[in-house]
Simulated scan of single mutants.
Amino acid sequence: MLTVESLKKSYDDTAGRRSRRPGNEGTRVYAVGGVDFEVHDGELFTLLGPSGCGKTTTLRSVAGLERPTEGRVTLGGRVLFDAEQGINMRANRRGLGMVFQSYAIWPHMTVFKNVSFPLEVLPRTKRPGRREIEERVEQVLDVIELGAYASRPATKLSGGQQQRLALGRALVTRPELMLLDEPLSNLDAKLRETMRFELKRLQRELNLTAIYVTHDQSEALVMSNRIAVMNQGRIEQIGKPREIYTKPATRFVAEFIGTSNFMEAKVVSVDGREVRVDTAHGPLVAGEVDKAPAVGDTVMISIRPECVDLSPERRGNVPNEWSGQVLTRAFLGDVVDHIVGVGDLEIRNRSNPNLSIPPGTEVHFSVAPDKVTLVPVD
């Protein structure tokens, strides 16, 4: 549906140029350094990354609110932007719906008028008749569950209702593609969690194709069909949420998505999809490895805290069993985190709250081979 190819967006480093000697041309700063991805019909595709990684600039380039430096953007066979051919379709002609971080609700209008406004300002040749406008607005209000509030001033809605109103205003134009730029960031934590499922429900029911921008890992994992993890203007990995979490392609992805235990290791043997490594604290076996490294390679081991099986007693018949001492623990409500010291290494375990081991206790822990992830050393 949407294809983005070799997209780049750069800015002149004017501040840097002023600090250099006269005649120096300065440098170009790339907010987006060459990204490629496709968004399929009916898919919620998320651009995830920290502040300043280029995700919003990428979204605004698709929307037509930024002019990229290089690249090509096509939607359903239409060329929206092509740097080589000099094509840059105006934002209001791209037929996209956009929901911004701030809802930009018109405070002097009712809920109904907020939703109908995008239809009422269309060119006369494309503007639906009054009756059709009313029908489409009523349909959208029913979908976002605001039909009972049609005549209410928009400012009298709650935060969650205003978020749905902003979504409804974008939906009423029936766009080919929805663009959502951190639309839940202004909500409190509890409401934000509720609205994740609400947005996902609407996206599925309406079969919306959408690009969603967020820095919130939990939000991305809950809502997305696929995720593109961005860092410093580039995409580090694209995949389904479970794949991104369990099989990170780089250390950055493993660190940014959730929490991980890291240690450096050297490959000592490879047997099919099973890899044996040596670390400074003992041997480990990694199973179900998709792309096996070569013997002698240095790799980074990534182990998620919930995959560390902690026990006060040694079992002896399980792979990857190590011994250590509990350094500290933290009760987090639905889980308990233990920090276990193995020499100068600290391993984080995340357990059911029924298991709570005091600091200073000698313990044993193990990790199933298929939970040991090998990450290439950058």
Rank of each mutant, 00 (worst) to 15 (best):
E182W: 12
I235W: 07
F252P: 01
V229S: 03
S323D: 10
A286V: 02
L122E: 02
M1Y: 15
T14Q: 10
T298Y: 08
G54Q: 04
V143E: 09
R28H: 03
G64L: 03
V32T: 07
L374E: 08
R130F: 00
A220T: 06
L355Q: 13
V277M: 04
H338P: 08
S151V: 06
V229C: 03
S6M: 09
A210C: 05
E236Q: 07
V289G: 04
M223F: 12
K240I: 00
N207Q: 14
R136D: 00
I257M: 10
L332N: 07
V143T: 14
S19T: 08
R152G: 00
R273I: 00
Q325F: 02
A228G: 03
D271N: 10
H40M: 00
L75R: 09
P153Y: 09
T110D: 09
N207L: 00
T27A: 15
R127Y: 01
P283D: 10
Q163M: 06
V363I: 08
P128H: 12
R196N: 07
S351M: 11
I357T: 09
V111F: 14
E255S: 15
G129Q: 03
Q139N: 15
V367E: 04
L374G: 10
K266T: 11
E362P: 00
V172D: 05
A91I: 03
F112R: 15
P22I: 00
E219P: 02
M109F: 12
E43W: 01
G258F: 08
F256D: 03
K9Q: 02
N88Y: 04
I227N: 01
E134C: 12
K200V: 11
A148T: 13
G316L: 13
D216I: 11
